[in-house]
Write a protein that binds this DNA or RNA. Structure first.
Lengths: 225, 225
DNA sequence: CCAAAAGTGTTTATAATACACCCATGC
DNA sequence: GCATGGGTGTATTATAAACACTTTTGG
């Protein structure tokens, strides 16, 4: 082992759907480098910490989420020699999908963090723009073959809420009728409850919970606009 | 930046198809730890080197391949605190798909390396068994949605050769007639040449070259056994 | 001639799409 | 009643899969 040592960080692409728009949690940096600029939440890996544990810890610190059944996965590593002016830093990007949360409140590390609609995000510190881009791309791809979309929803949700998640992430319109049949007939996607939505215009909708499906399912439908 | 520094290595899952079997290039370790055991090719990242450059360099050293149009991509990073007895080492796994090559010859680093049929590979040094497993899984998944299978083939190949690649990687039998129509009708997959195979039993087959397709194509067919 | 592999055409099953239509609520 | 969204049924279309058949070589 030689002296070519790296600092190792984890950075998080934390996505949610708010007001029918895909949004990411970003922090405004309080210290150099890139002071005052927007960046992904993240930090250095502790001496005896595994990568996912480190990402889970950062996620909890930034969002207050204890990440019970939420989704967290490794994205990719970024280690361009000049990506950090302080020296050689390898960052392991992670992707988290969380339900719509109340705005991050003051206190702990979350003070400087806020949700930003992804369509309106400009340049970020370091190479975080690229990491964010890969996270969004991965999320879009995974919705097509997994039941992960439900992780964007609260514990109980309607089929229409779930559909709006797909529409927000993909930026397309889906046929509500075909969507309904598709998701309700995919084994393990949705667990029906006996409750219905009480308020709102139109006929009340049945409430569902996230099913246990982890793996793949036949492709989701993408209607033309 | 604190003293929690890591050594960073790249390890390579180098896959090929030899004699209709999926095979990986492995090295036998000449020094501790895990002296004498089989491991993935790899090594430490140099001070000013990017990850893919480092992987390309290791690939060239181990196989002699200059990696013109061959495939190389990052897989994932592995950093369990105890994965290397020498200390904290983060390894960035990479996946390379190469055509069937002559056996690695003595000289350079390739001396101790050899192809191993993946079905016959036992325990590997470090956590390389897991990295290999993820590489194989990724390769299997990507054949289904990309035209990557052709990177396992020599510069000119027949449809039957390409089919045997799918059959080797997936371990399934495919219908030669449906396969033919499928691959020849996928835009950008195959470039037809005017040449035919000269020898061999049966009717001569047309030779093709790798097409330019990079992205996705409709799912490949998987026939039942 | 026969066996073997290449390649084409046709039929059948399955899944995706489009869309007509009925249901249950708020106003 | 009427607008709004929830939910079901069905026709149409694309695609995958199964397989009969012709072509072209070597022996």
């Amino acid at each position: 082992m030689r002296g070519n040592l790296f600092a190792v960080a984890v950075d998080l692409v934390i996505l949610t759907v708010r007001a029918d728009r895909l949004a990411a949690l970003l922090v405004r940096r309080g210290i150099p480098p890139f002071q005052g600029e927007l960046a992904l939440p993240g930090g250095f890996v502790l001496p005896h910490e595994d990568l996912l544990d480190s990402a889970r810890r950062e996620l909890a610190e930034e969002t207050g989420l204890s990440l019970g059944d939420h989704h967290l996965e490794q994205l990719a590593s970024f280690a361009a020699p000049d990506r950090d002016p302080r020296g050689r830093v390898l960052s392991v990007g992670h992707l988290a999908l969380v339900p719509d949360l109340p705005d991050p409140e003051a206190g702990s590390d979350a003070a400087a963090s806020a949700w930003h609609e992804v369509a309106a995000i400009g340049a970020l510190a370091f190479d975080h723009g690229r990491i964010l881009g890969e996270g969004i791309e991965r999320a879009r791809a995974k919705l097509e073959y997994t039941t992960l979309a439900a992780t964007f929803c609260p514990p109980r949700f309607t089929v229409a809420q779930l559909r709006r998640v797909y529409e927000a992430v993909w930026g397309t319109a889906l046929d509500p009728r075909n969507f309904q049949r598709k998701v309700t007939s995919t084994p393990g996607f949705l667990i029906p409850t006996k409750e219905m939505t009480s308020s709102g215009r139109g006929r009340p909708a049945q409430l569902f919970e996230r099913g246990p499906a982890t793996g793949l399912h036949p492709p989701m439908l993408r209607d033309p606009a």
